[in-house]
């Protein structure tokens, strides 16, 4: 149980993915690679949407996003996250909430 991957958890959730229209984006990927040593988004996003690549780049895939706002707020040193809610009806659909 304690080794469950976050992907396995997200698999239980219902989503309506807005294909090709991510609601969150990294404003300038260079800032993540060259100016941000902590890259806390990769640790603190509860859905694991941000991953660190070997070359220092951060890759963001918003499909599993829980729309909490964590990534935008913790990026307070660089303000490098462009964050909007998904279009109406898209994104996470909580069955229980």
């Amino acid at each position: 149980m304690s080794t469950a991957k976050v992907e396995e958890k997200l698999f239980q959730n219902r989503y309506k993915v807005d294909t090709g229209r991510p609601h969150i984006s990294i404003k300038d990927p260079e800032i993540c690679t060259n100016q941000c040593s902590s890259q806390q988004c990769a640790v603190c996003c509860p859905a694991g949407c941000y991953t660190q690549e070997g070359n220092g780049r951060i890759v963001l895939i918003t499909d599993g996003c829980l729309e909490c706002g964590t990534c935008r707020i913790i990026c307070d040193d660089h303000r490098n996250v462009a964050w909007e809610y998904p279009r109406g009806g898209y994104g996470i659909l909580f069955k229980f909430g």
Partner: peptide, 9 residues
Amino acid sequence: EMKEYAAHL
């Protein structure tokens, strides 16, 4: 049986 995982601020 776990049926949903959620996060919120």
